[in-house]
């Protein structure tokens, strides 16, 4: 199970030593590569909690299911705003579905 980081969207949170995705991963699986982009060091160790997906200010991280457990290419991305998250589900045929969930009383 894993997440995919889009290298052209990730900016490593500038020169931050602890980009947001790196900060929140409960398994400490994300780190910066020499080109200042975030990478997942060991995809098989990912729990799929989506913490990094929701935290990334660039929406550079997406979640998919591995082929091994039936993944066929659907992806989930998230945009976190004050008190809500907007999820974008892209299906194998390219069609999209959007969801808005309330997260905090603001």
């Amino acid at each position: 199970m894993t997440v995919r980081i889009n290298k052209s969207l990730c900016n490593g949170c500038g020169n931050s030593v602890e980009p947001k995705c790196v900060m929140v991963c409960p398994g400490d699986l994300l780190c910066k590569d020499p080109s200042n982009r975030c990478v997942i060091r060991d995809p098989k160790d990912c729990w799929d909690c989506a913490a990094c997906v929701k935290e990334c200010p660039q929406q550079a991280i997406e979640m998919t299911l591995p082929v091994q457990i039936g993944g066929r290419g659907s992806t989930l991305k998230a945009k976190t705003e004050k008190g809500r998250i907007i999820w974008q589900l892209t299906k194998p045929d390219g069609s999209k579905e959007f969801f808005e969930v309330h997260t905090r009383n603001t």
């Binding site: 290419g73 659907s74 989930l76 579905e97």
Partner: peptide, 23 residues
Amino acid sequence: NRRLKEAYLNMSPGLVLKWADEE
């Protein structure tokens, strides 16, 4: 359907991907 997907996005988004992958 929509409400259930939202509920799973809030705790276990993998199932939403599974539904989508299985069309």
